[in-house]
Structure formats: structure tokens, C-alpha cells
């Protein structure tokens, strides 16, 4: 899909598929086109070109309670109570009054807000209000939950609560799509990832595949320079030699596996005291794929 606002292309030829079940991360720097893409999936915006299918149908409000959505910009009707808010959103999505109230009370209780259920939103703390918003997104028990920057503005305790909710939902069979520019959350939660930069897709796959985008790195402690070993692209001395041993940082050649190098060392009699592989972080993967000038957080 393509989305243009006047002369500005916010999303450019983006194409992806989210498998049902699990947590799908939508990663990118600020302004990369994440929110615009999600808005198109919700039919809040229409693509300039291309087509979208959500749960096997064109996006639209007829999907109703099948989709839950927590937007990046959070707000509530200040004069409504916590329960009324959740019921209202449930009813907007087609729930009958009775079931909507029952589900609202359950969610409010689950988020520890029972004592504040009948308080007006304007009297709730920011954290409480955010839980009410999340409850409003979950009230219909959606098959697909779309969370746009869900951790923004949450304190660490509430971030943990939200992570727990996301994982529970995924475990119960729902599909969770969430956008973020904070790679730690993605690392902890996502089964699959989509990285975009300036509206274009730069990667799609699981975390291992993402890490595989980076050349492997190792720290070796050896008596001789490992530069000549098969699969080694470069080796840099890290620290001073100790009793004849030297620490090296080794970069593997593209496609070379650390296991194959270890096997080569063992069979070739290459003396090693340390063979430590580095697991690349998503942050490093992101920087590698899109460049260091994009605004992201580790």
C-alpha cells in the first residue's frame, strides 16, 4: 500500500502479512509511517494505492468487536466514569448493554481499578486512565488487538502490566500488533517483526532472522591471530596479551556461522581459551538496517 498526503509520501509500497496468533511488532523510528499504516488497517485512513485485508475482509467498522485498538494519542471523555467509558466503547463496537457492562466491570477489576469504577475519568491518575483506555480496547475480547506505541507514557510498573496483558492475549489465541520505536519491548514480546524506515519496509521476519541480518561477532582468546580462519572477515585485538594469550573481537563473513568456525578451530588444533558469541540486539539490527540517524531507543 501507498499513502500520500499531498506531496508527502508517508507509506511507500509497503506490503506485509501478519500471521494469526502471536505478537507482531511494527518497528520504526518516529515518522517512519507506523501510525499511518495502522490507521489504514483500521480504515481511519484509506490508502492512496493498494489494498488491505484484515481478518479476511476489507478493513472497516463492520469488523466491529473483532478488532481492539489503543491509539498512540490517549484521551477519554473526562466527564464519563471509568465503567461508562468502557461500556460506551463496547457499545460503539456493537455489544449489547448487558454484556458490555459485564465485560467492563471484569476488565476494570482485572486492572485493579474496582475502587475507581464509578469515578469520573477527570479524577483518575494518568496511569489509571491509561488502564481504562486499554480496557476499552479489550472490552469486546478482540481477535486482533492493535496497539500504537502502547508503552509510551507508562511507568515501569504499568509497562510490566501491559506486557503481561499482551502475552496473555497472544497465549489465548488473539493476534497482537503493536508499533513501537523502543526495541526492548519488541525484543521481549514479538514473535515476528516488521521494520520500516521512511515509509518503506526494510525487514520482515522473526527475531533470529532479524539478527541474522548482522554479521556474527565473537570474542576469542587465542594464542595466534584468528584472521586466517575460515569464515572470519576481520579480527581486532581487544586487550593486552596475558601469558601469551590475546583477546580478539572477530567479525564473521556474511553467511558464516559461529559453530562452523568453532569446529574448524577444534579440528585444526587452533588453541582457544575463550569462544564467546555475541547475540545482536534488535537495536543493533535496526541501526545496521536503517542507519544511525533514525530516532529510536534501545
Amino acid at each position: 500500500m501507498v499513502k500520500r498526503f499531498g506531496g508527502f509520501t508517508a507509506v511507500n509500497d509497503l506490503s506485509f502479512e501478519v500471521p494469526e496468533g502471536g505478537v507482531f511488532g511494527f518497528l520504526g523510528a518516529n515518522g517512519a509511517g507506523k501510525t499511518t499504516s495502522l490507521r489504514m488497517a483500521l480504515d481511519i485512513l484509506r490508502p492512496t494505492e493498494g489494498a488491505i485485508s484484515v481478518l479476511g475482509q476489507p478493513p472497516g467498522r463492520k469488523l466491529g468487536g473483532e478488532i481492539g485498538f489503543l491509539p498512540e494519542e490517549r484521551g477519554l471523555y473526562r466527564q464519563m466514569t471509568a465503567v461508562e467509558t468502557v461500556v460506551y466503547f463496547g457499545r460503539l463496537k456493537g455489544m449489547a448493554p448487558g454484556p458490555a457492562r459485564k465485560a467492563a466491570v471484569e476488565l476494570i477489576d482485572r486492572f485493579g481499578l474496582s475502587a475507581f469504577a464509578d469515578e469520573k475519568v477527570e479524577k483518575l491518575s494518568k496511569g489509571m486512565a491509561q488502564k481504562v483506555q486499554l480496557a476499552a480496547a479489550l472490552v469486546t475480547r478482540p481477535r486482533l488487538l492493535i496497539l500504537d506505541e502502547p508503552f509510551a507514557g507508562l511507568d515501569p510498573v504499568n509497562q510490566a502490566v501491559l506486557e503481561e496483558v499482551v502475552l496473555e492475549l497472544a497465549k489465548s489465541g488473539s493476534t497482537v500488533v503493536f508499533s513501537t520505536h523502543v526495541m526492548q519491548h519488541a525484543e521481549r514480546l514479538c514473535d515476528r517483526l516488521l521494520l520500516i524506515a521512511r515509509g518503506r519496509q526494510v525487514f520482515q521476519g522473526d527475531q533470529e532472522a532479524a539478527r541474522a541480518q548482522l554479521p556474527g561477532r565473537l570474542t576469542l582468546t587465542a594464542k595466534t591471530d584468528p584472521k586466517g580462519l575460515p569464515g572470519v572477515a576481520s579480527a581486532t585485538v581487544l586487550g593486552p596479551a596475558s601469558r601469551g594469550w590475546t583477546d580478539y573481537e572477530v567479525a564473521l563473513a556474511p553467511g558464516a556461522a559461529a559453530g562452523a568456525l568453532l569446529e574448524a578451530c577444534t579440528t585444526g588444533g587452533f588453541a582457544l581459551r575463550r569462544f564467546e558469541t555475541h547475540r545482536a540486539s534488535l537495536h543493533e539490527v535496526f541501526l545496521h538496517l536503517v542507519g544511525a540517524d533514525e530516532e529510536i531507543q534501545p
Binding site: 490507521r39 481511519i44 491509539p71 498512540e72 490517549r74 477519554l76 466503547f89 460503539l92 463496537k93 480496547a137
Partner: peptide, 9 residues
């Protein structure tokens, strides 16, 4: 700031 939440419904 609840326009998006409402327009999703």
C-alpha cells in the same frame, strides 16, 4: 485526544 479511538469504532 480520543479521536482515533472513536474513529476506530
Amino acid at each position: 485526544k480520543l479521536l482515533e479511538a472513536v474513529l476506530a469504532c
